[in-house]
């Protein structure tokens, strides 16, 4: 009796375990099937190319003859030591980011503070400030290029009515950089405004009410309550905006083509130029790797700060 029972239970157990394994495996297989399209596609169109570009960056590659020779870090040395253009480009990218990021975030925060609570007309203003975000960057650049022309541009014609002689915005190096920054801010500020509005709306109103009852002024409330509570949002927005400023391409391509005198030649555009206009594949790849390193560093910085924030 006892042995029969034992036999039965072991048979059951054995059978059960075998089937269970297959059931579990089926669940795992289904899951793998679900994630495989994005994973394989990502592997082919992102991760593979990411590895490849590192390889390319160590080649001297003549696109016409198809000859490629391994040159080690020569392309990097070329960029970092020999080619003055590179530092110019890096400086331009830095100036672009340094101008765009504070302007964008400051304006976004101001607009969000004005528009995060309902009042008559709030939707109207939100819709207006966000409209350029949904507009194609190409269309936006075309229209602004038109508005900012030297002689017949609408901006200068209007300034002339006020007796001001406006510069040829996109043809003078300093003005050109300012112009692409400001027009880009107007294009993108709506997005950060919306993110800030969402962040502001997630702050419980009780804080504000409590502070008001204690006699705090609007500015005090902002400085001592709202701004600290916005810190996580500010961090995310700032990283996204910085990385976003790094990859601005179409805007520059259409408004200034990097000019005048390479005054608006930024990294993203420089990569495109070197690769697809001058066919310096090896050199352009080295630039792309440098861009990747910068973007990765910024992302890791974000992760680091968020970890620290939570701790």
């Amino acid at each position: 009796m006892a042995s029969a029972m034992t036999d039965l239970s072991t048979v059951n157990n054995g059978k059960g375990r075998m089937l269970r394994l297959s059931l579990r495996r089926r669940e795992a297989l289904t899951a793998l099937l679900f994630v495989s399209p994005i994973t394989i596609g990502f592997l082919v169109f992102f991760f593979g190319p990411l590895i490849a570009v590192i390889g390319y960056s160590m080649l001297q590659w003549n696109l016409l003859t198809g000859e490629a020779t391994f040159v080690g870090y020569a392309n990097y040395a070329d960029a970092l030591r020999h080619n003055p253009d590179f530092w110019r480009v890096l400086r331009n990218s830095l100036v672009f980011a340094a101008g765009l990021v504070p302007l964008n975030m400051g304006l976004a925060l101001l607009l969000a503070l004005a528009l995060h609570r309902p009042f008559r007309g709030v939707v109207f203003f939100r819709v207006i400030f966000f409209a350029p975000v949904v507009t194609s960057a190409v269309a936006w650049a075309i229209v602004w290029k038109f508005l900012l022309q030297g002689e017949a541009g609408a901006l200068n014609e209007m300034l002339a009515l006020m007796g001001i002689d406006g510069p040829n915005w996109l043809r003078e190096p300093n003005w050109a950089m300012a112009a692409v920054i400001v027009t880009r801010v107007i294009k993108m500020v709506g997005l950060n405004m919306i993110l800030y509005i969402a962040a502001l709306q997630s702050i419980p109103r009780d804080y504000d009410s409590a502070a008001r009852l204690e006699g705090a002024s609007g500015w005090q409330i902002f400085r001592m309550i709202t701004w600290p509570l916005l810190a996580p949002a500010t961090l995310i927005i700032s990283i996204v905006t910085v990385v976003g400023s790094l990859k601005v391409f179409d805007h520059i391509y259409l408004m200034t083509e990097g000019g005048p005198e390479n005054g608006t030649l930024v990294l993203a555009f420089y990569i495109y130029q070197q690769a697809f206009e001058f066919f310096a594949i090896g050199y352009a790849s080295a630039l792309a790797v440098i861009m990747f390193v910068i973007a990765m560093a910024l992302t890791l910085l974000q992760v680091y700060f968020r970890r620290k924030d939570r701790a």
Binding site: N13, K15, G16, R20, S22
Partner: peptide
């Protein structure tokens, strides 16, 4: 939830691996 060890039976049937 699946069974780590032992058996669950409904009626005469061991259902450990029945969906």
């Amino acid at each position: 939830e699946d069974v780590t060890s032992g058996t669950v039976s409904i009626g005469e049937r061991v259902v450990n691996d029945v969906p």
